[in-house]
């Protein structure tokens, strides 16, 4: 039974590693300027975690195989290194390993979160509400109209609660249910929650950020590849959470300008 146990965990460990080594299930290709560092961090962590995982399971299997059901007169043995050796080893190897990971990771994080967006980044506002995202572009005047929560009326599609009657800035604001952005242009995403907590996750863009009701947060990123991607909500927001999504269309500058004109005409 002990040998069966040893074999089982070795087999499980190897089978678990195969899909990872073969890249059977991996994140979709990165289309952001900052994502490469995250991916690199991920694969380094995978290497270190993978080795630790396999080593721990194999050693456990080996000891169980070797030291179980021994004859009654078999001699007990002490592990030569003793606890001190293990503790020092763990402190050095694991300590240095995780600290190194942590320090290298700082740069990947800072890229996205600590550096300010450049001055010419294009502002786009996203509003998350049960259970859809809506996007707002400031229009030709470059100014967003003010938000008036009491004016929100989804039936007549006043999604953001704009007041074009009194607010000139709001009149040319463009509201869309999909997010179009020009390729290779830095986007400054202003995140506003209408009701409860939501999140903005685009796998290809390597961005995920929660919306905080009552606190507008922002993100900045640059998409490098034209295409259509999914934006999904990852913060449990109610019964329609599973279906809360929108599409991100990364376009050439020309297509984007045309898109914006078309939206303005509607």
């Amino acid at each position: 039974m002990a040998r069966l146990f040893a074999i089982t965990i070795v087999v499980i460990a190897i089978l678990s590693a195969i899909p990872i080594l073969r890249h059977t299930w991996v994140a979709p290709e990165d289309i952001s300027t900052h994502g490469a560092l995250i991916d690199e961090q991920m694969s380094e962590t995978m290497a270190e975690a993978g080795i630790s995982f396999l080593a721990a399971q194999f050693i456990l299997a080996f000891f169980v195989w070797k030291f179980s059901n021994r004859a009654p007169d078999a001699k007990l043995k002490k592990f030569p290194g003793g606890a001190k050796g293990l503790v020092i080893g763990a402190l050095l190897v694991v300590g240095i390993e995780v600290m190194a990971l942590g320090l290298f990771g700082v740069k990947a994080w800072a890229n996205v979160y600590l550096d300010a967006p450049s001055a010419n980044a294009m502002p786009v506002q996203v509003q998350a509400g049960q259970f859809a995202f809506y996007f707002r572009y400031p229009g030709v005047d470059g100014k967003f109209g003010g938000l008036h929560p009491e004016l929100i009326n989804e039936g007549s599609q006043n999604i953001f609660g704009l007041d074009p009657e009194h607010d000139v800035d709001a009149r040319d604001d463009i509201v869309a249910a999909e997010m179009a952005i020009p390729v290779n242009k830095e986007i400054h995403l202003l995140m506003h929650a209408k009701d409860v907590g939501h999140s903005f996750f685009v796998r290809e863009l390597r961005v995920q950020q929660d919306f905080v009701p009552g606190l507008d947060v922002s993100l900045h990123f640059t998409a490098t590849k034209i295409g259509k991607y999914e934006i999904v909500c990852t913060q449990l927001c109610g019964l329609g959470h599973y279906n809360m999504k929108a599409y991100l269309e990364v376009m050439s500058q020309q297509d984007f300008d045309d898109w914006l004109k078309k939206q303005a005409g509607q």
Binding site: V64, P72, A74, L86
Partner: peptide, 11 residues
Amino acid sequence: TFSLYGSKLRI
């Protein structure tokens, strides 16, 4: 794990 080393493990 290393306490198992040299033991007489009962299954």
